[in-house]
């Protein structure tokens, strides 16, 4: 099944040249040959310089087994001073998956996303000099993940579980703390008839002093009951991390994640 994707036909490129116009000169050619790159790059990165960079690692399966929840991780820890990261799935109806600000955290973010069709998926990291470093890979998929209604709506009692949090921190000897969190939320794209877009659009992890360590800005493609993994760099002696979040209906939630080994 995983076969090399042929380059897009010249006619498709030509069409995009016309649409994208002069901005093209600033965007490096896409090594993945995705037909959307020339349009997406200016939309996502604006006028900022963009380079393809192998130091950004993108983890995703070659074949998407579950179009509702494809694992995706981006590791830019090989780059210095990463200020912001963005995850993109070119051919999704909403290409931007999430934005991540590793304020006092490693340049690493992992989650699961909906996939509408076979696509390029990318991770981009903006360093202190304003340059976006991009890498990615192609994933094959049966698709349909963005247009399907959330499974929670079939269960009927989803509102009773909305905002429930499962989380655990794994403190390391070097003072960092790996953090995994799961929030119950439909994360609806708004593409199913009669179901409006409804998703968590802001999550903040902070230390006990209230200083934010990382911010996640999820968008429509993030999977239902989203799971995020990151590595926070809290102040020494931190005993708990504070998670706060909000969805696009203004519903807020908060949870405290102990830094000691949690009881399973």
């Amino acid at each position: 099944m995983p076969t090399p994707r042929p380059a897009p036909p010249a006619s498709a490129i030509a069409a995009l040249l016309v649409i994208a116009g002069p901005a093209l000169a600033d965007v490096p050619a896409d090594p993945l040959g995705s037909v959307m790159w020339e349009v997406l790059a200016p939309a996502v990165f604006g006028d900022a310089p963009v380079v393809f960079d192998e130091r950004v690692t993108v983890l995703a399966p070659a074949d998407v087994e579950n179009a509702l929840a494809m694992p995706l991780a981006v590791d830019a820890t090989a780059l210095p001073d990463v200020r912001e990261m963005v995850l993109v799935a070119d051919l999704n109806p909403f290409p931007v998956v999430l934005r991540f600000e590793p304020l006092a955290a490693r340049a690493f973010i992992a989650t699961r996303i909906k996939v509408e069709q076979a696509t390029a998926v990318r991770g981009a990291a903006r360093t202190a000099d304003g340059v976006w470093h991009v890498n990615g890979r192609l994933v094959d998929a049966a698709g349909g993940g963005c247009a399907a209604p959330p499974r929670a709506y079939a269960a009927g009692d989803w509102t009773r579980h909305l905002g429930e949090v499962q989380a655990r921190a794994w403190p390391a000897a070097d003072g960092s703390a790996r953090l995994k969190l799961r929030v119950r939320h439909p994360m609806d794209t708004g593409l199913s008839a009669g179901i409006p877009a409804y998703f968590i659009d802001r999550l903040t992890v902070a230390g006990e002093d209230g200083r934010p360590l990382a911010r996640i800005h999820p968008l429509e493609p993030v999977s239902e009951d989203p799971v995020f993994t990151l590595v926070a760099l809290p102040a020494p002696g931190t005993r708990a991390l504070a998670l706060t979040g909000r969805d696009n209906n203004g519903i807020e939630f908060a949870a405290t994640i102990p830094m000691t080994e949690a009881a399973p």
Binding site: P71, Q166, F253
Partner: peptide, 23 residues
């Protein structure tokens, strides 16, 4: 390839069952 498919099939339930509920 089949190992990766199995990760997709089995992992979410394992995580759901083992990640502690804190809220």
């Amino acid at each position: 390839a089949e190992y990766q498919r199995s990760v997709a099939h089995l992992w979410p339930a394992i995580e759901r069952e083992t990640l502690p509920r804190i809220r």
